[in-house]
Nucleic acid binder design. Structure first.
Length: 462
RNA sequence: GCCUAAUUAGCUCAGUUGGUUAGAGCACAUGACUGUUAAUCAUGGGGUCCUAGGUUCGAGUCCUAGAUUGGGCGCCA
């Protein structure tokens, strides 16, 4: 019988003077002449468990006192309440056994390491306090997303990872091919002949599950897709990764207003959920990662998100006293400095909606002014653009016209146009960068530190 | 992709104007210690100063190129 540290932390009061067995890794070991202390972490809880070992109970006291940090051990002993000490209880060992030694050069020490060093040791960093907390919260956040949508009767749809659609926009994609790259089959025009490839056409890793999600929304009404996404851009920033996770809900019989309502409700739900399920972890982030994190989250929880049009936002930028490197323009997207100013100016998350049509994607619904589309971005402090969404163009003629204007090939997207031919209706959706949401919730400032084994340009270790 | 900074022990860092044998804390090893919790104390071992060239009587230190990493920006349905 073995107990997890999490179980003991929850039930220790009822287990006083009972024998328990724990397995885990040594976080620190402090030996004196006839007794010593091991702080044990088994990964099930953020906190460690103190194991007291004494020479009078152990034959192997000498070797136990030499167990190094990182070693895997088993400890059997008597759970004892210690109300006057720092920890509420401890284990008085009757048996301590080495399962897996950790050699002298174990890189993770009971001291502060730089994030860069830990990134290079991505296989060992989940053993540190910080990453133990980050990746537990990541797991809980995944669950929070599913429960938010499942509680609202959304259908989860697994959209494909490999697609043949290159029509979604200018985003660079990773190609998927089984052709011999040294000697590929060529067409008469001396171009690579993808008809000889595995799928008999050019394929790539997905940059979005949205188009397929739309098909399901026009069957199930409310759906969401949640999974990995791949971008081959040579982006070197702390908010971009080559492989990341994206959540994309899609709702039918709904407009942009409904879309923003859903996004706002969801963000608040996720914050509330994490506060409830990972209070220890949040407290840790609040102390050591971002001072004021809890205050920030509470503020977001309790105030309505500001909603301004792109036009109003640009106006606010133009009226700002601050000098920008890039001049704000009514027909342009924002630069990073503009986004930073806007979230500061509006004091928290802010929706920017009704964007000029020429800087947005072909599927976004044209507004009555003929100049803007029903698109929205949610900007948040620290993580930049957290959510981007729109109401979709449901009118076949207008959609076809827009595709022609933007050189989107129609042939590959006949199925997408079908959705407008057969029972079309207004619908909307958005995409949320899951990893950016996690950054926002934990205060971690680099996306590489919220992804277990991050992939970025020139880096695919592990 | 552009700009900028950094790279010295397992880790975090110091290293004077270019000049003796490159240092500290933690970690590791040995020992002391009857309640420690980043324990403490004593002693000890541990270095391709990122790589390749160059300048110089002499380079961790100066120059050139490259690699890697950080930060800023760009790209980003």
């Amino acid at each position: 019988m073995k107990q997890s540290v999490r179980y003991l932390l929850k039930n220790f009061e009822a287990l006083d003077q009972q024998e328990v067995t724990v397995y885990g890794w040594v976080k620190s070991n402090r030996a004196q002449k006839a007794f010593g202390f091991i702080n044990l972490n088994d990964g099930t809880a953020f906190d460690t468990l103190q194991v007291v070992y004494e020479s009078e109970f152990l034959d192997n006291f000498g070797s136990v006192s030499k167990y190094r940090v990182g070693s895997a051990i088993k400890a059997k002993g008597i759970l004892t309440l210690t109300p006057n000490r720092r920890d509420p209880f401890e284990i008085k060992a009757r048996e301590v056994e080495l399962i897996g030694d950790s050699s002298e050069d174990y890189p993770i020490q009971p001291k502060r390491h730089t994030r860069e060093f830990l990134r290079e040791n991505a296989h060992l960093r989940p053993r540190t306090n910080l990453f133990n907390a980050v990746f537990r919260v990541r797991s809980i956040l995944t669950h929070a997303i599913h429960s938010f949508f499942q509680e609202r009767d959304f259908i989860h749809v697994a959209t494909p990872i490999i697609t043949a659609s290159d029509a979604e926009g200018a985003g660079e994609t990773f190609g998927v091919s089984m052709l011999d790259i040294k000697n590929p089959p060529l067409t008469e025009a001396k171009e690579i002949d993808y008809s000889k490839d595995f799928f008999q056409k050019k394929t790539n890793l997905t940059v979005s599950g949205q188009l397929e999600a739309e098909a399901f929304a026009l069957s199930f009404r409310d759906v969401y897709t949640f999974g990995p996404t791949f971008r081959a851009e040579n982006s070197n920033t702390k908010t971009h990764a080559s492989e990341f996770w994206m959540l994309e809900p899609e709702i039918a019989f709904a407009d942009l207003e409904d879309d923003m309502d859903l996004a706002e409700k969801m963000v608040k739900y996720l914050i509330k959920y994490i506060k409830e399920k990972a209070p220890k972890e949040l407290e840790f982030f609040n102390r050591f990662v971002e001072k004021g994190l809890l205050k920030k989250l509470d503020y977001v929880l309790n105030s309505p998100f500001v909603r301004v049009t792109h036009h109003e936002a640009v106006k606010a930028l133009k009226e700002a006293k601050k000098k920008f490197e890039n001049t704000p323009d009514f027909n342009e997207d924002f630069a990073t400095e503009h986004e930073k100013y806007l979230v500061k100016h509006f004091g928290g998350p802010v929706f920017i909606y009704d964007w000029p049509k020429n800087i947005k994607a072909f599927y976004m619904r044209l507004n009555d002014d003929q100049e803007t589309v029903a698109a929205m971005d949610l900007l948040v402090p620290g993580s930049g653009e957290l959510i981007g969404g729109s109401q979709r163009e449901e009118r076949l003629e207008l959609l076809e016209k827009r595709m022609k204007e933007m050189n989107v090939p129609k042939e590959e997207l006949q199925w997408y146009l079908d959705l407008r031919r057969y029972g079309s209706c207004k619908h909307a959706g958005y995409g949320m960068g899951f990893d950016r949401m996690l950054m926002y919730l934990t205060g971690i400032k680099n996306i590489r530190d919220v992804i277990p084994f991050p992939r970025t340009p020139r880096n695919c270790e592990f």
